[in-house]
Design a protein around this nucleic acid. Sequence first.
RNA 1: GGGCGGUUAGCUCAGUUGGCCAGAGCGCGUGCCUUACACGCACGAUGUCACAGGUUCAAGUCCUGUACCGCCCACCA
Length: 995
Amino acid sequence: MAEELSKVYEPKNIEQQADKIWAAGNYFHAEPDSAKRKPYTIAIPPPNVTAPLHLGHALNNTIQDILIRYHRMLGLNTLWMPGTDHAGIATQTVVEKRILAEEGKKRTDFKRDEFVARVQAWKDEYEARILEQLKAMGCSCDWQRTRFTMDEICAKAVRATFFKLFKDGLIYRGKRLVNWDPATQTVLADDEVEHETIQGNFWYLRYPLTEPVIIEGKRVEYVTVATTRPETMLGDTAVAMNPNDPRAKILVGKSVRLPIVGRIIPIIADEHVVLPNPNSEDEKAKFSTGFLKVTPAHDPDDWAIGQRHKLEVINVMAPDGSISDKYDWKDWEQIKNPDVENLIGMDRFEAREAIVEWFRVEGLLEEVRPYAHEVGHSYRSHVPIEPYLSDQWYVAVKKPIDHLEAKFGKGMIDGTDVPVNSLAGFALKPLLDGRLKFNPERYAKTYQSWLENLRDWPISRQLWWGHQIPVWKREATERETSGTLIQDTALDGGILTMNNVEVFSQTGWEKGQKYWFECPPPGHPEVERELEYLGGEQDPDVLDTWFSSALWPFSTLGWPDESPALKTFYPGDVLCTAREIITLWVSRMVMMGQYCCGDIPFKDVYIHAMIQDGEGRKMSKSLGNGIDPLVAINSHGADAMRFTLASMTTDTQDIRMPVAQMTLPDGRVENTSPKLDVGRNFCNKLWNASRFAMMNLEGTNPASFDKNKLAITDKWILSRLARTIDEVTAGLDAFKYNEPLNAIYKFFWNDFCDWYLEWAKPRMADSAQKPIAQNVLAFVLDQTLRLLHPFVPFITEGIFQKLNELVPTRGLKAIAELNSVKALVIADWPRQIDALINEQIEGQIDNIQTVVRCVRDIRSRCNIPPSSKLVVSVNAPQDISGILNADAGLLCQLANLKEFSASDSAGKPKNAAAAIAGSMQIYVHDAIDVEAERKRLTKQKEQIEGAKKGVEAKLFNENFISRAKPEVVAQTKEKLAEYTEQLNAIEKHLAELDG
RNA sequence: GGGCGGUUAGCUCAGUUGGCCAGAGCGCGUGCCUUACACGCACGAUGUCACAGGUUCAAGUCCUGUACCGCCCACCA
C-alpha cells in the first residue's frame, strides 16, 4: 500500500524530493541525440557575479523555466544553457569598494594579478551562490554545461572573434572623446553614465575680435559665446557660427583673441551652430548668441566640428579633472602667462569660478542666465562625466564587410545608412525580414531605432577585470616611421608571418610616436612571446563586458569549434530578458551571431516586466525594498514564488510587488510580499485536493472503466479540462503567462475542487459509480499536474510520484490513453481532447450550479442553518426542468435539500422564498422571513428594471435596429423578453408577500 | 529633447478583433472547525473605467488633446 501524502504541505520536503528525482534521472542534460528530436534552446541571460540574484532574476528565470519545461514535455530536445557573467566594471567596482571599506586599500595598492585574484575570489563566491539560487528556484538548466564569460571556453571565443574582427578591418584604434570619470579615473560606457538634471547657468562670455568690424553701421568689437562650461574655454580653438547667420558674411574668416589665454583663434562657419531666436521653443535657440565656442578636446560636438575644420585639439585637463598643462596642451609654451598659470592645478569646478570671476573683473562677462540641463554622471562615483580625449579600440559597425557580400548581399538597408553586410545590418535585417520577433512587439522599435542610429562601438576599458585585449603594441623603428603623419588614427596595416602564423597589424600615432598594433591569432602563445621579444607589450586594457556577452549564445557551445552541440543547439529559439538591455546585449548577440555563425542566435525575444515595489519604485539595495528570492522560497516555497510571479506576468512593462516585513520560521525578519500568499494558497489547495483525491484512488483499475457509464459530472469536468488544455497550450505558445495560469487556476479551484470533488464524494461509496469516478478523478488530476508542471514544478512532481505509486496506469479507455512515465518532468504534455468538449452538458451543469447558489443565498439571508435540510421546487421551461429533475441528486447534495422537484407549471408555495435566475424561478419552501424576502425581491426588481431600461432604449433606437449586427439585435430582444418575464414574476411574488 | 508604457473596486491587477447589468485575488462584512484544505468553505457588499472632446446604433476598448506616475534613449553651447 502506498504511503499517504503528509497532512500538511511542506514546500521544503517536496522541493528536496523533486530535486533528487530530477538529478537521478539527469533530465536537464541535453545532448545531440540520434533520435533527431527537434532541439529547443534557451541561453540564460548570465547573471552578473556582482551580487546574489534579486526578484527580477527570479521572474526572468521562472519565465525561462516555464518555456523550457513546457517544450521538454512537448518532446523537444531541450537545452537551457546556464552560466554567469564577469560583468567587468560592475564587479571590479564592488570588489574595490569592499577592499577599501575593509582594508582601506585602493586597487592601485595591488599588483594587477593580485587584484584580479581578489576579484576572482569574489566571483567564485557569488557564482556559487547564484547557481544555488537558480537551483532553489527550480530552474531546469543543463548544469553540466555551466559556463562563465571568462572561463577558458568563452575566452577562446572572445579571442577568435577579436581576431576575426581585426583581420576583417573592423577593429581600429581611434582617438575619441570618451566618458571619463575623473574621480575613479576610468572610461565609462555610455550605459554607465546616468543623466541627471542640474540647475546650472549659461555664462555669456565676450571674446574680443582681433580687428573690430562694422555690422549694419555699428562697430563690433567682440563676439559673445554662451556656455555652461566656462572652464573649457582654455582649450578653445575656434568660434563657430551658422553660415546662414547674416553676420557670418562679415565675421567668418576673422579671428578673436581668446581671453586669459591670448590664443588667436578663427571664426568659422558650421551648420551645427543653432541660430539665435529668443521666441523659439528650442532651448538652444533661446539661449544662443549665434556664436559657439569650439573646444575639440572637451566636448563631443566640438570634437566633430574640429574634425570637419581640422582644428587644433588642445587638452587642458589632467585625468583627475584639474587644469593642467601636462597633458597635450600643445601651445602652452607660446601662450603661458600669469593669468593662465594661476589656474593650473585647480579642480575643474574651482577653475570654472575663477574664470567666470576673471571675465567679470575684465568686464567681459555679459550675462549669467540660469539653465536647467541634463548632465551625465558616473554611476560609480556620481561625479559629472568629463568628455576626455583618449585612445581607444573601436568596432566599426557600419563598415561593409566585402567577403560576406555573397551571403548577406550589399548596399544599404532601405531608408537607412546601414549596409546590409555590416555588423549593424546583420542585426537590423532579420528584424525587418520578420525572422526575429519581439514579444511584446512594441520593443522592436527600441531595437530598430538604436541600430539605425548606431555609432561605432568603443570596446576597450581601463580595467583589470576582464578579457585583456589581445593586441601587442610596439614602437615603430625609425625606418618604419618614414610615412607621413596624416591624423591620429590607424594609418595602414598589414600581415606579417611569424612562426608560419599570420599576424595582423595596424599602425597608429600617439604623441608623435608611431606604433605597431599587432594581433596574433588565438592559440599561439609562442607568437605572443615573439612579439614581446621584439619589444611589444600587450595592451593593458580589457574588453567591454558586452563583448563577451555578445558571444554568449555560441561561445557557450564551444564555437569556434564545430562541436556537435553547436550544430544541434545553435541557432537557439528564445531569448528572455528585461527591456533595459535590448540595445546593449540583444542587438549585439544578433550582430555577432550572424557574423560568427552566419545565423541569428534566437527567433523570439521575450521582454518581461520590471519588478517594482508597492510604490512603483525600483527594488534596490539602497532603498532596502528588495526581496531576496531565497527569503521568498523560505517563507512561501519556490513554487509559490513562481506561481505568483507568473500570475503577475502580463504584457505590461512594470509589475508592482508590495513589500512587507515578515518573521521567518528561523526568526529572521526579512522583506517578503503578501502577494506571495496567492501562490502559497494555491499550492496548499493543490496539495490538499490531491491528498483527498488519493485517499479515494486506492484500487483504481483502468480496465474497469466504461465510457458509456460516465456521469454528467464526469462529462462536464472532462469538457472543462479539454478547454483548459487548449487555453493553456495556446497561451504558452503565445508567450502568455498570466492567462494560461489563470485558466488552470479557475479550472482546478472553481470547477474541480468546488464542484467536481464534492459531487464525487458520495460516488466513492457506490460500487457501481466508484470505478468510473476513480478513473476520471485520476485522469483529471494527472492532466492538471502536467498543465501546472512548468509553473510549479516541485509540488507537481511530488504529487505525480505519489500518483504513480497509487495508480500506475491512468487513462480513460477508448477516450484518452496515457503512457506511464517515471517522472513528470519528462511526461508528455496533455494532448488535445476537443472531442470531449460538450457545450450542452456545460449548460446543464451551469443551471444546476445556479439553483444551488440561489438556494445557498436564500439560506444565508434568511438565516437558515446550513445543517437544516430544505424543500425546493423550481418553475422552469420543460427542457430545463427535465434536466434538473434528472440530476436532482446533485442539487440535493450541494444545496442540502431533502426534496426537490421542477416543472414548467410549478407555482410559488405559501411561505416560500423565491429567486429568479434566467428562465428559472426557484422556491425555497418554508423560508418565512417576510421582511428579508421583500428586501431581497425589491432589490432584484430594481436591478432588473435598470437592465430592462437599458435594453429598451437600444431597441427603441431605430439606428440600432438597422445598423447593429442582426445577432446583436436578436440577442437584445431575447434579453428584453427575459427581463419582462422576470419582472412579472417578481411583482407577483411581492404582491403575494403583501397579501 | 526623442520614444514607450501606465492611470479600471480600499490594495495588486485582468479585460483578446468595440456588443448582455465591467472581472479576479487580497482585503472587507455575515455565517460556518460540512470526515482534503481556516493557507479553508458558503454567501454578500464595493467602480464617474484619470480628465476633456470626437468617431459609432454601441466606447474601459478606436481617434485627438490634457494631467499625473514611471521607464528607455540622447554629445553638458
